[in-house]
Design a binder for these strands. Structure first.
Lengths: 121, 121
DNA sequence: TGCATTAGTTACCAATTGGAAACTAGTTTC
DNA sequence: GAAACTAGTTTCCAATTGGTAACTAATGCA
């Protein structure tokens, strides 16, 4: 008889799975990480700034993803009474807690590219 | 005149965006992170182990995601000549470099839950 | 008057994702 | 001989995702 591996069946593992699912849901979609990344580096940015800076995103997607991020309190949306009205988006303190994740993901991606090119193994 | 934010237009930012895109592609889909998580904690595991441990996954998905992970060299697949033949999956050394990402994601998820329940802000 | 800019919204469409269930195929146990 | 366990594969379907392009609405500028 073989000892069955029950790694994910312990309480700790279930908590972990839930935690991972939660985070991935908050970051779901093609663009949220990039929007956060841009705002983390650029500070306060306007809608058109983001539209221009994030390569390939369409207004519809940007608008929708910004709403999601705002709902999750990772960013704030502030209407500025300029003429042409402008809207400023900014990462909240809470949103900044995402930075380590984004950094790890970016680091791994660099590592991945180096491995592909640098050497076969 | 206003200085345009060009955060993501620098070379460093483009590299970062590519890096993030790469990593997210390697981890794409609903299940890869959970499969890696299970294998990182459980060590060597068989197909049916994973099917049972990862709550909700169907054989089709598990099979497909395992193939993707193997193609990216994050895991190995070893056929063991037992009777009923069994197949063992294991995280490679390279695959283990994903651990910091998965840990950060799991940590953030726990933090997120605590914030939701513990206090409004 | 007409065009540009601001920040979006809307409608429509195509591709991808993922789930359920049935099926294959070899071996072993009752 | 039938059922069960191994590791999948196949088919078919539904929902989600995301893209294009056009449109709104207010304001400023030539």
């Amino acid at each position: 008889m073989r000892t069955r591996k029950t790694a994910t069946k312990s309480l700790a593992c279930k908590v972990r799975i839930t935690a991972i699912t939660d985070t991935m849901q908050v970051l779901s979609g093609k663009w949220k990480i990039h929007i956060l990344g841009a705002l983390l580096q650029g500070g306060k940015m306007r809608f058109m700034d983001l539209l221009r800076e994030i390569d390939g995103i369409a207004a519809k997607m940007l608008s929708k993803e910004l709403q999601d991020l705002e709902m999750n309190q990772l960013i704030t949306r502030t209407v500025v009474d300029t003429k042409p009205i402008t809207v400023e988006y900014e990462v909240t303190e809470y949103g900044k807690t995402m930075e380590p994740i984004i950094d790890e993901i970016a680091n791994w991606g660099v590592f991945y590219r180096n491995r592909l090119h640098g050497k076969a193994d």
